[in-house]
Design a protein around this nucleic acid. Sequence first.
RNA 1: CGGGAUGUAGCGCAGCCUGGCUAGCGCACCAGACUGGGGGUCUGGGGGUCGCGGGUUCGAAUCCCGCCAUCCCGACCA
Length: 491
Amino acid sequence: MTQTGDKADKTALVTEITPQSEDFSQWYLDVVRKAELSDYSPVKGCMVIRPYGYAIWELIQQALDRRFKATGHVNAYFPLFIPQSLLLREKEHVEGFAPQVAWVTKGGDEQLAEPLVVRPTSEVVIGTMYAKWIKSWRDLPVLINQWANVVRWEKVTRPFLRTTEFLWQEGHTAHETEPEAQEETLRILELYREFCETELAMPVVAGQKSESEKFAGAQKTYSIEGLMGDGRAMQAGTSHNLGQNFAKAFEIQFQGRDKSLQHAWTTSWGVSTRLIGGVIMTHGDDSGLILPPRVAPYQVVIVPISRGNWQETVLPRAQEIRDDLTATGLRVMLDDRDAYTPGWKFAEWEMRGVPLRLEIGPKDIEKNQVVLARRDSREKAFVPMAGLTAHVAGLLDTIQRALLDRAVKFREEHTTRADTYEEFKRIMDGRPGFVISPWCGDAECEAQIKAETQATLRNIPMNAVRWDAGGPPCIKCGRPAVAEAWFAKAY
RNA sequence: CGGGAUGUAGCGCAGCCUGGCUAGCGCACCAGACUGGGGGUCUGGGGGUCGCGGGUUCGAAUCCCGCCAUCCCGACCA
């Protein structure tokens, strides 16, 4: 909060949220803190996820877990620690992660004979177990997911977006054939894309990562990329086809239908608590958080108008409404605190992103109605008590859709094509967003673009235009392009 | 990990340059009263080893050294 003392701007003083236009990063940090999503902890780079933030995570978990189960996956749990020797077995993997791992070298008073790393990801532990479990083609596929915490020693951290320890899910599968592994990789990519749009109202671009942005040890990496309110992209999830790299390093072998000994084809994929950061930055405004109803801890907040003997007159009606709404499965908060005025509660719950506010006062009871106020559009409407439950449910669906539509529109408005490097640089210098440009496929061009503009190649969308030969000139070097790639400055 | 900035009550800050008595202010918090349809008013209160550790000094929030944390800009990453 950079507010200094402009008494005229009472709202800003009270909310203490920096406007997005002034400083988007500070806005984000203000929202995270004021909405009580997380707090800093005594441990460098590690955040506490507070109940309101954790409730969002639980809803994300439930919605994802349903989808994983529906596609044949099961949950399991693997150890937090990895023996050093195991980590060293996949060369690219260890090179990729070594700079970021935390080591355990002592247990109690004793120096460990072999140091342990705290998992930055679990390919090696799970791969080791798969080697034991998989003997025959009949054992395949193995489709396991784990909900866990991981640790990566990051230099720069930000709540939810990048923390030393974070929560995520990591799926690890093993398959009999290469096409099956590829199919799984893309199935999950699509599952993630659909999840983000349906539950988080967050449109994402699903596509393939370039060689240099690939996961350490993967054959192919795919990602979903969202566009945040400040025009920067955020990688919301990844899905990797690991080929036989890990199977070879960890000897995941099985006897095939043709009696020959073969290495399995594996995949891994994950999304993390970072998604919460994505939700905040996709939908939020200067008043604070705006939560999509599907992942809002409270979908409706009921604010009784506290006039006169409201606790005898208004409150019982409010309680009835709460019970009716709750009975249909909605998540409802009745804010019956006497210490705060209605206006204060309005502002408070808006800041915390509750999608729908229901006001009820003496006048409403007389007229047999309530007031419904939308967080996303701020529209207020009188709604008859009769049929209220259905109306509320319908309105929440409308809000969910409206948030997605708004986010899609924002992305479209901030996605530009550039065919010359001059144009590319001009766009990246000004209003950020996605820039779609032809690219030759050379990592050197990609690196130069990054060095000169800070923009990175986010991915090449699944439905992007590709050329085997005779593509238009690469944005950077002018050689024939292989595909249209999406670039952006990213989180 | 390099460059910069900040750290004083839950939040936002003043005080530091030029050392000195009991460390202030706004919001928040507690009690009571009046209030209540967009962040109410009044009265009375509580809360601080001034980020941590050393040093200089009769005396340190203030000066010096070291460390830690956070934020911003780079390099690295979900």
